[in-house]
Simulated scan of single mutants.
Amino acid sequence: MKQMAFIITGTLLCAVSTTLLAMPNSIADGGILGISLLLFYAFGFSPGIVTFISFIALLGISFKYLPRHMVYKTMINVPLLSLFIYLTENLGQPIDDPLVAAIFAGLVMGLGFGLIIQAGSSIGGTSIIARICHQSFGWNIVTSTFIMDAIIVVAGVLVIGPLYTMYTIIALFTGKVASDYLLGGFDAKKAVNIISPKSKAIAKKITKEMGSSATYFHGSGTYTGEERQALYVVVRSHRLLTLKRLVREIDAEAFVVVHNVKDVSGGTFFATAVEGALEIDQGEEDPETQV
């Protein structure tokens, strides 16, 4: 039931992004939706009908080349997306600033696409063609999809002009970022590797003053061959500067590497200060203990 709710909501968001934000402001898209929008701008064809016919044709071909379960996953989205587009394609109004329209079109599309992916489905399109090419010729799916979408977007120069094609690229980028955040998590964090001969002292200070936990790793340098303990710490983004300050107070020469992470679950990375301090004190007896 939850997956069905995600599919319906995500498909509706993709549809209204197309009809309420993209269509009235001459913004295109990639894939089959992009083709339907370009045909609308050039000849006035209904995007809902074009989308439905195109997807049905692709699904018919894909039955011959793709596993059945891949085809079945898109059979719900295809008519639903076409129906939502058809019902709302005359409701949109132009926005004075096309750039704002492009940003929000991409945002809404990205959120809708993210919900559909979370439900384990897809809206098909060029990804179906890419999978057929992969099955038949061994072509890379991601590369093939990117090339086909790029060709469609670039073709927009002939229909909507270079300026609105650039707006389209902004919308696609915004949609990619939005779907990535929806799938990967909104609460961005930083993973930090700290290599220092004073790693125990650094870990103890981090736990007592920040309430964060850490993990010891053993390693050795390829140049000196000297064995060192490395710390792995995960902190919320706004606390990164505090962490770096604490490290510098103990070892100004510590080697620190920061990685972006979007989702963290499980473990005791965000233990309370009291719990963390107890773990550190116990860990000092055994350098392999996770703190």
Rank of each mutant, 00 (worst) to 15 (best):
L278D: 07
G31Q: 10
H218V: 09
A155C: 15
L241G: 13
A214M: 06
I49A: 08
Q135Y: 01
A178L: 10
A201C: 05
A5V: 15
S17I: 12
C133H: 01
G106P: 02
E227G: 12
V247N: 12
T207W: 00
V50A: 06
F55R: 03
G283Y: 04
A155P: 04
G161Y: 05
L99V: 14
S199I: 03
E285N: 14
I141W: 03
T207S: 12
S54K: 02
K176Y: 13
Q282G: 14
D263R: 13
F52T: 03
P24G: 07
A252Q: 11
F255A: 11
H69G: 11
A15P: 01
G276W: 05
V50E: 01
C14Y: 00
F186D: 08
I195H: 07
I95E: 07
W139S: 13
L12R: 11
D149H: 02
A5K: 05
G283I: 04
A277V: 06
Q229H: 03
I160M: 10
R68L: 14
T272K: 09
T143E: 07
L182W: 07
L81W: 07
G161F: 05
E253M: 12
C14F: 02
E226A: 08
F186N: 08
V154Y: 14
I128M: 11
G60K: 08
L158G: 06
M166V: 15
K244D: 06
G125R: 04
T289A: 10
K244W: 03
I194T: 07
G138N: 12
L172A: 13
V264P: 03
E288I: 04
V258C: 08
I132F: 03
